[in-house]
């Protein structure tokens, strides 16, 4: 592949020259300069190397490495129990890996978790919220925990409630919310401090189509302005339409990763996914299930 004319090779050299220390930056994860993975000068939004995690005798994640380029909309797909949630938990500081490293914007997450977490917004899956608070209180609580001042928190809370169509329910306790509304208020909590990196575990589960479209629009705008989004999902169609990068995870390992077009290789993402993961059976089973 040739270098595009709009980007003369000299520019690359002139930028790299004044800063010769960059390639040896100790904070940069190993293997960063691998061709085709990431540009060595700007560290990826998230770089994960050799993550490994076992629970008792079950190995949930076996050596996952991923590079999420800055400004990308990155989908993580995989069958149930593939280790998606475990990987994302380790990448956001919720779960300490047995081995491996996590770098967010070039900074080692597990070396200084509290500082790095300030640049990350997280929507974890399968955890409760402080659901005895009202929706407005919960978002405010998150903002204040992030150390933001009262006025900014109040303004952003109103904006988020409006954007996610929760204004009418701002005064209701979160425990009385529906599953979709709970997802939306949790998303608002992930967004309030304007993070550089958003990690969303199953953000569209139980969310109605209109709200899902609103959320997609918010996320797309976030990516357009330089933010990075990682979503995990089961819905291949959604990932194919929404994301520009995708990683297929199964059995605690990355089976394929790259741009969506690279991974699906001319077929639909769903077909490619089933191909990669395997496990499709023929339809001859369950003959007794036929009604006629």
């Amino acid at each position: 592949m040739s270098v595009p004319p709009a980007e003369p090779p000299t520019e690359h050299g002139s930028e790299a020259a004044p800063d010769p220390a960059t390639p040896h930056d100790p904070a940069a994860p190993p293997g960063l300069a691998t061709p085709g993975v990431a540009d060595a000068r700007t560290p990826p939004a998230l770089a994960v190397r050799g993550l490994w995690k076992s629970f008792g005798s079950t190995v949930a994640v076996r050596g996952i490495s991923l590079d999420v380029p800055r400004g990308s909309f990155y989908g993580v797909v995989g069958p149930n129990g593939a280790g998606k949630t475990t990987t994302l938990s380790m990448a956001t500081g919720l779960l300490r890996p047995d081995a491996g490293s996590v770098h967010v914007g070039g900074r080692d997450l597990w070396a200084d978790p509290d500082a790095v977490k300030r640049t990350v917004g997280v929507l974890p899956d399968g955890v409760r919220l402080f659901d005895r608070l009202t929706g407005a209180q919960l978002i405010t609580y998150t903002g204040l925990l992030r150390g933001m001042d009262r006025d900014t928190v109040a303004d952003r809370t109103q904006d988020l409630l409006a954007a996610l169509d929760l204004v009418g329910d701002a005064g209701r306790l979160v425990v009385d919310y529906s599953a979709g509304m709970t997802k939306k208020v949790a998303l608002a909590c992930a967004l309030i401090h304007a993070p550089a990196l958003l990690v969303l575990d199953e953000p569209f589960e139980a969310v109605d189509p209109v709200s899902a479209a609103n959320i997609r629009e918010i996320l797309a705008a976030f990516v357009r302005t330089g933010g990075t989004v990682i979503v995990s999902s089961h819905v291949m169609d959604l990932v194919q339409r929404m994301c520009d990068h995708v990683a297929v995870v199964s059995d605690g390992m990355v089976l394929a990763a790259g741009t969506v077009d690279e991974v699906r290789a001319g077929r639909s993402l769903e077909d490619r996914f089933v191909d990669l993961v395997g496990g499709r059976r023929g339809t001859e089973g369950l003959s007794w299930l036929r009604t006629s």
Partner: peptide, 15 residues
Amino acid sequence: YDHTAFALHVAVGVS
């Protein structure tokens, strides 16, 4: 008592 809602404190990095 927080149960898994405590995840918020960990995700935010509350001191």
